[in-house]
């Protein structure tokens, strides 16, 4: 499994989920080596400054915890850019709602890590919701305006599932897909064949692709 080392020689952390998911053998992120966690008094003082609207306190939190939170988020998302976004979201949330943490009763590093994890999971869910649509759209849209259709999409091992999903589409959506994909027509040609504006052809294609993505996701056959 590919790993990435944090600054200061932190323990290796999983760069991406395993094929079966993100759990399993990936070692959990650990704080940067050589840095002791804040003492309780330091956390109390830091939290007080954060509540009091002192941006330098947020800078201290960033300096101390950014690498760790980045590793936590990357372990879930497998995506460095997403992990950076998650890190930023967590620290901004802490600045905006500092009283949701109580240093007398909570543990700052653990709390921030849990927040980062949940936001990373949210990112994964959003990504999953987006990906089938994007990938199906990309696969089909590339064909619809191109000179010749690439039939790889239908030659996948789950092509039957794709054909079944297309067959289940409403007629007006199905005919656009069939013309654009199976007969390798461009949007303009589809519009002429169906006697509809080209924009209508495109909007029907978008609707068809969304429906296809949903169906394929339910079947577990999304690309």
């Amino acid at each position: 499994m590919p790993t990435v080392h944090g600054q200061d020689g932190a323990a290796p952390v999983a760069r991406r989920p395993s094929a079966a998911g993100t759990g399993g053998g990936a070692p959990p992120p650990t704080p940067a080596a050589g840095r002791q966690p804040h003492s309780r008094r330091e956390v109390v003082e830091l939290h007080g400054r954060l509540v009091a609207g002192d941006p330098t306190a947020l800078a201290v939190v960033h300096e101390r915890y950014a690498r760790y939170l980045l590793a936590v988020a990357a372990r879930v998302t497998g995506d460095a850019d997403a992990a950076r976004d998650v890190l930023q979201e967590v620290l901004v949330a802490f600045w905006q709602h500092p009283l949701r943490f109580d240093p007398d009763r909570g543990e700052l590093r653990t709390w921030l890590a849990v927040l980062a994890h949940r936001r990373a999971v949210d990112w994964v869910r959003r990504e999953i919701a987006r990906r089938p649509t994007d990938l199906v759209a990309r696969a089909l849209a590339e064909q619809s305006d191109g000179p010749a259709a690439d039939r790889d999409f239908l030659e996948r091992e789950d092509a039957d599932a794709v054909r079944a999903a297309v067959a289940a589409l409403p007629v007006k959506l199905r005919e656009v897909v069939e013309l654009a994909y199976f007969r390798e027509l461009t949007y303009r040609e589809v519009a002429i064949r169906l006697a509809i504006p080209e924009g209508t052809a495109k909007s029907r294609m978008r609707a068809a692709l969304s429906a296809l993505a949903l169906t394929l996701t339910r079947l577990g056959a999304a690309p």
Partner: peptide
Amino acid sequence: PPPAWSTVGPPAAPTADMDL
């Protein structure tokens, strides 16, 4: 693990390093 990845598989591995 977030179980949802099992539906479509994990995303591509990050190509950039983890620097900020």
